[in-house]
């Protein structure tokens, strides 16, 4: 699911393995968006990493191999020191099937970007499916969306050749199903414009989490986070600026 979520944004990337788990940071080709992923060791039934290692992987190749796994298979990832290949083993404990695949690794000279700690002006958590719906609906009308956070709520608006549209979400607490709540923490009003093409792309991570958190400040990249039980996928998107 993680590979599915990011494979259309980045093609080749390093999986950085160390004591804390497997991490990845990569920009898209146009250098407008950045994806950062972390799978913590606690999320693995077994995890061993004797030495920090970067596994340079073509995500399309990895995806091809992962398609060979069944949903409930146990997956083991293995790489030696200075590896040429990443080994994947899929096991089905019920019928004792073991599938073994190797994918070739590549040297990827990937620069890491320092992401400054930011006190965001607005932090909004909403159901991830709702966010996906809004992005898809608005993309049919325009290529850009204005996101405005005020004490009234968060407003997504766009205008295109056929007309215009806007969706406003107000803070709303669902006691029975907290994952359906919308929470808005506002330090100061925020108004920014983003390319919908990227937002729709990020929504491929919707299956990772029932909620998504948008963190916004004026004139800095939008942070979109899908939290998992033992890790996260974060997308950063640079804003568009006015004419």
């Amino acid at each position: 699911q993680v590979v599915d979520a990011i494979k259309d944004l980045v093609q080749d990337c390093n999986f950085d393995c160390n004591d804390s788990g497997i991490a990845l940071q990569a920009m898209d080709n146009s250098h407008v968006a950045l994806v950062a992923m972390h799978l913590k060791t606690e999320g693995f039934s077994q995890y061993r990493c004797d030495r920090n290692i970067a596994l340079g992987v073509n995500l399309a190749s990895l995806q091809k191999v992962l398609r060979a796994a069944q949903n409930e298979d146990l997956l083991t990832l293995k790489a030696e020191d200075a590896p040429d290949v990443l080994s994947l083993v899929f096991e089905n404990s019920e019928n004792d099937r073991i599938s073994e695949y190797d994918i070739k690794l590549m040297d990827i000279d990937q620069e890491h970007l320092g992401i400054p700690d930011t006190e965001y002006g607005a932090t909004v958590t909403l159901p991830s499916a709702e966010f996906q719906r809004i992005c898809r609906d608005l993309m049919l009308i325009s290529e850009s969306v204005g996101i405005e956070a005020t004490k009234e709520g968060i407003k997504f608006s766009c205008a295109g050749d056929i007309g215009s549209g806007a969706v406003t979400l107000r803070q709303n607490a669902n006691v029975d199903k907290p994952e359906l709540s919308t929470t808005i923490e506002l330090q100061e009003p925020v108004a920014l414009t983003f390319s919908l093409k990227y937002l729709v792309n990020f929504c491929k991570a919707t299956g990772l989490s029932s909620t998504v958190t948008l963190s916004l400040s004026n004139e800095v990249p939008l942070l979109i986070e899908y939290k998992m039980e033992h890790g996260f996928v974060r997308f950063y998107l640079a804003p568009k600026i006015g004419d």
Partner: peptide, 14 residues
């Protein structure tokens, strides 16, 4: 893209 900022104008190389 006109008006689209790049991510590297916000995040510096380490």
């Amino acid at each position: 893209q006109a008006g689209q900022k790049g991510i590297m104008s916000f995040f510096q190389k380490k």
